[in-house]
């Protein structure tokens, strides 16, 4: 126990600096402005897997690892949709997840946004003709 904690005290932080300029930095500033004016606080995200292959989940989990530490930008993942501002959807929205996804959305307080993450949620990705999928999580939003 002592060893990794001591090491963490003397070495540089593992967390890398955020983008200082460029499109990504600009996007960050815009997002911050919008959320502050609309919500008056940082963003709470509820992620729902609507049929992804689990690669998106692994990568979204990775954004919370010490290298990226998404929390420091005011973006944090929450367990309950009641606490969420954003519904982050991955996967092509399978028919079997349709009701669960809709209920999660309905449980969120207003104002709320839906964000599609990954190719499958955006346009079906490599599964555009999937019989069992509705494709495009965006359909959820009224």
């Amino acid at each position: 126990m002592r060893n990794p904690l001591l090491k963490a005290l003397i070495r540089k932080p593992l967390t890398e600096a955020g983008p200082a300029d460029g499109d990504l930095a600009e996007l960050g500033r815009t997002l911050e402005r919008e959320t502050r004016s609309r919500l008056g606080r940082s963003l709470a995200i509820r992620q729902v897997d609507a049929g992804s292959c689990n690669a998106c989940e692994l990568e979204i989990q990775a954004t919370a690892n010490p290298c990226y530490d998404l929390d420091r930008f005011g973006l944090h993942f929450v367990a309950s949709p009641r606490h969420a501002d954003i519904l982050l959807v991955t996967g092509p929205v399978t028919r079997n997840m349709e009701v669960a996804l809709r209920r999660t959305y309905d449980a969120m307080p207003n104002p709320k946004w839906v964000v599609a993450a990954g190719d499958c949620a955006i346009d079906g990705g490599a599964l555009p003709a999937a019989m069992r999928c509705l494709t495009a999580a965006m359909r959820l939003s009224p």
Binding site: G51, G91, P92, T94, N96, A129, A130, M131, R132
Partner: peptide, 11 residues
């Protein structure tokens, strides 16, 4: 299970 059924066998 079955929530992520995408019909991959059929595809």
């Amino acid at each position: 299970l079955g929530y992520t059924h995408k019909g991959i066998d059929r595809l």
